[in-house]
Design a binder for these strands. Structure first.
Lengths: 300, 300
DNA sequence: TACTTTCACAACTCATGGTTGTTTCTGCTG
DNA sequence: CAGCAGAAACAACCATGAGTTGTGAAAGTA
């Protein structure tokens, strides 16, 4: 192509940033391979032979096909697929804020239909998604997965008006030891099962994780009516409830327990939006106070 | 492609006749180059990832484009272009016989508009034609040109009814020393100029090569009327003349002068029909008697 | 627990594509 | 006609990389 366009080997060599001799060898090799002379050499350059003229458009076709193929999978040319678990909780909001920082970005926020972090990691590994926000022990992170702790979500106590702590500005986790915490519908393999397990052990809480989840409304209903029942939610979680419930969020302090989301991604993933997302989370990052608590297993 | 089709590296390796490890390295290199994972490796094989599925049709496109490009210039997929000088003389007839031996062959018989052998050789070198029948000194054959002496055309004397030799069964070249041979319209750079030059020197002939050529009919006219004038023609030449001319062909013997056509072709030309043509000429080859004369310069 | 399958890694070999230096060919010019 | 300049090919050398064999790790299977 370069020789045909420029009319001589040296010019083609300059264009290709190689030596004239290398061009000569390439052409000779190609002609040998094809069994046909592609160029007519004269003392003032070269021009395509009849066979060369036939070959030229095909060669061009190969080059453009190659370019198109590379374009098609070039990182950034497809949307970044991020799993946000659930559109009501902190990861989804973080991703949405990221999206609003540059609304023309090529981003898909999806919700993987699994509560299991290992399965999410597998999906990342297989390329179904580029990233997922999950909490999982450092020891269980499979090879080939990069995990960055970029989103610590402080927990808050959600109580009804009759609860003794309903007017507190904040409460300490240890103060909850006498109260029942009810978080329904936690399946044993769900990623937050381990978190609440560790949390209750650390502060002597009695978290009632059993029993089916009958929906947010049933939970709100129970909380609003009970003077002893409380539940834990992420500080940014958008559980909408009707005004008549009058539930209150009480921040936890000293220390502040945080749910440590790791951004799981494939180690080799070069998608520029992935880097951008990491940067975004890093800068807008931990608004949590210094005195935080997280399970020791997240950082190994 | 092979991995995607077979579902595993080893099977792809078998298909490609290389080792499984080589396939692994190729895929790894491609993925590194593209910055994207194309395959999902499992313990029971591999399947295309999302990026891989996007890439696959492009890859297929590249392969078919490459195949098409090679096909387009594959020797044999285009007609063999043979220069026969002039449709009335021996080379054209030889090529026509060759063509009839397999009428579906892909062959173009063309007549290059030059009487100069060196120019014909240049056209061969440049790929304008694949082959040309020409007589030229071995020393003048350019590098890169293969020359095969495959068509010796015996000469015959063409005379009118009044010529002393008009009833001879054959004549010896030396016997022509006293007679005028008239071959009009030979330009000095024509390839047959050298031939007739050498011929007349060898046998002491006086060949009148000068004067413009006023067409075959004028020549026939002159021959038919003259008792002393004769000309030389190839034994197979198809000079048609009206019946009323009554010209006779007298074979030359002892020795038989032949016009030694060389089949000029590009040394690297792989066209299968070219080989076939050479074989054909070689077998149907020299029907000329043993006692032939040709210029010494043809074989150097 | 052992075994099989599948892919990746390591070390090595060797063909290939690149380099520089030089030669050949051809057309041009004094 | 010798000399010159431009273009491509040839030669020798070398680094890269694509292939090889041997081996190991991971995951499913008996």
């Amino acid at each position: 192509m370069a020789v045909a366009e420029t009319g001589q080997f040296q010019a083609a060599a300059d264009e290709l940033r190689i030596s004239q001799q290398a061009v000569s060898k390439r052409i000779a090799s190609l002609e040998r391979h094809l069994g046909a002379a592609l160029l007519v050499r004269t003392s003032r350059g070269s021009r395509p032979s009849l066979d060369g003229q036939v070959f030229l458009p095909h060669a061009k076709g190969i080059l453009t096909a190659t370019d198109r193929a590379e374009q098609a999978v070039r990182p950034g040319n497809r949307p970044l697929r991020v799993d946000v678990l659930n559109r009501r909780i902190a990861p989804a909001q973080a991703v949405y804020r990221f999206y609003r920082s540059q609304p023309d970005m090529n981003l898909d926020a999806v919700t993987l239909s699994t509560e299991n972090a290992a399965q999410a990691a597998k999906a990342v590994l297989e390329g179904t998604i580029d990233a997922s926000f999950r909490a999982m022990p450092a020891a269980e992170i499979p090879a080939g997965i990069a995990a960055d702790r970029l989103l610590d979500v402080p927990l808050e106590l959600l109580v009804g008006p009759g609860h003794p702590m309903s007017d507190a500005a904040s409460v300490r986790p240890a103060d909850l030891a006498d109260h029942r915490i009810w978080i329904p519908g936690i399946r044993p393999d769900a990623e937050w099962a381990a978190f609440y397990e560790t949390l209750s052990e650390a502060f002597g809480l009695s978290i009632d994780a059993l029993g089916p989840h009958f929906g947010d409304e049933a939970l709100m209903d129970a909380l609003a009516d009970s003077a002893s029942l409380a539940t834990l939610v992420g500080s940014g979680d958008r559980y909408l409830w009707p005004e008549n419930y009058d539930l209150r969020r009480i921040p936890l302090r000293e220390p502040t327990p945080v749910y440590p989301h790791l951004l799981l991604s494939r180690s080799g993933d070069q998608h520029p939006l992935l880097t951008a997302l990491r940067d975004h989370l890093h800068t807008t990052g931990p608004q949590a106070p210094d005195d935080v608590w997280a399970p020791d297993w997240v950082d190994h």
